[in-house]
């Protein structure tokens, strides 16, 4: 009897834990390509995300066609020829924050481990970053590199001097507690 109660208690704990969620309310993902002829950068503020500090699980969804470029033609080429945004409209990350301690004040260095999907290709990645918990808000920052070839994004030979093979990605997002 006691054993059964223990089992039920355990199940309740594991099932209620995800309920405490934080949602992404503000943030920007920027990428930089530094090549011989041209530096290209684009910004996306139309991202969404959920973080569960109880389970350390985190997920991001990035609509590819919301990256804003200075040159609009470049933005069109990015969507049409490289990301194929009509086929693969979203880039996603789903994983957990390793090294995260809930309720710990101040900035913490963590590693996001999980599946990064870009251009329809999913890779297991480990991405370093920092996290700061402040009452009902959580700030996350990260900077990492993405090799285009890993996600079968091909650069035409004619443009190898314009587009870098490895792209730097910067993430700066704020999560806010969402009462259930």
């Amino acid at each position: 009897m006691r054993r059964k109660f223990f089992l039920v208690g355990f199940l309740v704990v594991t099932f209620t834990a995800p309920a405490q969620k934080f949602v992404l309310t503000e943030g920007v993902i920027t990428f930089f390509s530094k090549a011989t002829l041209e530096d290209i950068s684009a910004e996306n503020t139309k991202i969404s995300g959920i973080f569960n500090p109880g389970t350390h699980e985190i997920a991001f969804v990035i609509p590819n066609n919301q990256f804003q470029f200075e040159k609009k033609l470049m933005q069109q080429h990015f969507n049409e020829k490289y990301m194929e945004s009509d086929k693969f409209p979203r880039s996603t990350f789903s994983g957990t924050l390793k090294g995260f301690e809930n309720f710990k004040p101040g900035e913490q260095v963590v590693t996001a481990v999980g599946e990064l999907t870009i251009h329809g290709v999913t890779k297991i990645v480990e991405v370093p970053g920092t996290i700061e918990v402040a009452q009902d808000r959580i700030f996350i920052k990260s900077k990492f590199m993405i090799k285009l070839a890993d996600y079968s994004i091909k650069i035409p030979q004619l443009l190898w001097q314009n587009i870098a093979e490895t792209i730097e990605v910067a993430v700066a997002v704020t999560f806010t507690h969402k009462p259930q």
Binding site: T14, F15, P18, S48, G49, I50, N52, T55, E57, I58, A59, F60, V61, R90, T92, S94, G95, T96, G114
Partner: peptide, 14 residues
Amino acid sequence: HASIAQGELLLELT
């Protein structure tokens, strides 16, 4: 449950 939940967060967003 944890592995489902991980996908669930993503599912919720998409």
